[in-house]
């Protein structure tokens, strides 16, 4: 996966990368929360950032620059691309900051009911 993302990044000029990361560090999670809904991120990734047909975003393992580049050009038929015209780098940094605050899921092995369901299904 990582490889794929860096593949997308390759054409991005080094200077703009610097700008992106500079802005990214100031991401505001409160603003990001609103953007996450207004910009329909939740539609495919869930309000949880991890439920739905979209990729699991939690825990967010991408750096802001990687995240921004991915959203600009996801390179998949599933995820629409978002240009800087509709979502600025700063806004994407806000969204990223919000996703970072979303709690991760417990592991299946730590949920007794899931374990029980799994044991029954795999019998």
């Amino acid at each position: 996966m990582k490889k794929l993302i860096f593949g997308f990044l390759a054409p991005v000029a080094a200077t703009s990368l610097l700008v992106v990361s500079a802005v990214a560090q100031q991401g505001d999670a409160t603003r990001g929360k609103k953007m996450f809904v207004d910009y329909s991120c939740y539609a495919c990734h869930g309000f949880s950032g991890q439920n739905g047909p979209g990729k699991r975003l939690v825990p967010m393992k991408m750096a802001t620059v990687v995240f921004t580049a991915y959203v600009r050009s996801p390179g998949t038929n599933q995820m629409p691309s978002y240009s800087a015209k509709v979502l600025s780098d700063a806004q994407l940094a806000d969204i990223w900051a919000y996703i970072k605050t979303l709690p991760d899921s417990p592991e299946a092995k730590d949920i007794p009911l899931v374990q029980q369901l799994k044991a029954e299904a795999g019998k």
Partner: peptide, 12 residues
């Protein structure tokens, strides 16, 4: 079934 853990404690 294992995939059920994703967002298990989420609200909504």
């Amino acid at each position: 079934v294992e995939a059920a853990s994703v967002g298990w404690n989420a609200s909504p």
